[in-house]
Design a protein around this nucleic acid. Structure first.
Lengths: 161, 161
DNA sequence: TATTGTTATACTCTATAACTATA
DNA sequence: TATAGTTATAGAGTATAACAATA
């Protein structure tokens, strides 16, 4: 139980987050934890001039050559218009290319350049090392369970009302 | 393994998110899951004219009468300036009050009004019902483990570099 | 008609510095 | 001098409508 508020007498009573609050605020702990991961990631990626979104996009393009923008947007769970600036930035820095698809000239096949693959490897190594610290004291089993829980929540996503 | 990209021949090969990607992208699954919870929450709270932040603030004030703004900001893991508009909105709608603290006239003691407590109960009921759907198929043990993992990650937060 | 990528735009959330009034 | 709350502001992330080119 987390103590967050002093009672009427600052030196005495301490109010707490109620059990009710903890039970109902599924998003509460999740957001706090995500903030920790996000801010750690931002700091780790700063030397590479990457943010969480550009880092994620770069990894997915490196690992899935030929990916189209609409597929990448879906994989990253963001809207297509918001992906454009991310791909723009990676392309401007010559980390990826937009190749026209011959069979469908509306689409682009995204591919990482050699520079993109190299930066990706370095960034992944740095992030992996950092995450080891964040995951200290957590058993592999517990982590696996947590990942499964998150995947289940995602698969329970409600179809648009 | 998640299929996200068609190979050279759309009808044939399917690329996948590599094991490497899944291992290194701790934030990847977390963000997707958080998006699901967040967007479900937004939809659920719309009838009450609440957002995740105003909802969280309201619950914490209802459950911790006398809370000060700086404590609330810390509990919500947001900066003080960003809390001001949230508290403003709740106060404008007469869901909470800013009571001056006699012993420290710089601070406010936040308290929910009757209307605030009533709206809170209704919103919590709606959210709880929705979350039951999101958590379908997840055992209580697994959920507990997932929550513990998140708390451990949070406690491993690195001090500012 | 429908889809891919794009532009424009608006809204929310976040982060920082500087101010005021109290301590 | 330090702290609680505030203002102003800038930067990210997100969501929607509408467009051109192509299917």
């Amino acid at each position: 139980m987390k103590k967050i508020a002093p009672g009427p007498d600052p030196d005495e009573g301490i109010a707490t987050v109620s059990d009710r609050t903890l039970r109902t605020l599924l998003g509460y702990q999740m957001k706090r934890t995500f903030n920790v991961i996000q801010s750690d990631l931002s700091r780790t990626l700063k030397p590479f001039d990457l943010r969480m979104l550009t880092y994620t996009a770069l990894i997915l393009i490196v690992d899935n050559p030929g990916l189209r923008q609409s597929q990448l947007a879906e994989a990253m769970d963001i809207e297509r218009p918001n992906l454009v600036v991310i791909v723009d930035e990676l392309e401007r820095r010559d980390l990826i290319l937009r190749d026209r698809v011959e069979s469908d000239r509306r689409a682009y096949a995204l591919k990482a350049t050699l520079a993109g693959r190299r930066l990706c490897e370095k960034a992944v190594a740095a992030v992996t090392a950092h995450e080891k610290l964040l995951l200290k004291g957590i058993s592999p089993d517990a982590l696996t369970t947590a990942m499964k829980v998150m995947q289940l929540i995602e698969s329970n996503r409600l179809r648009e009302a």
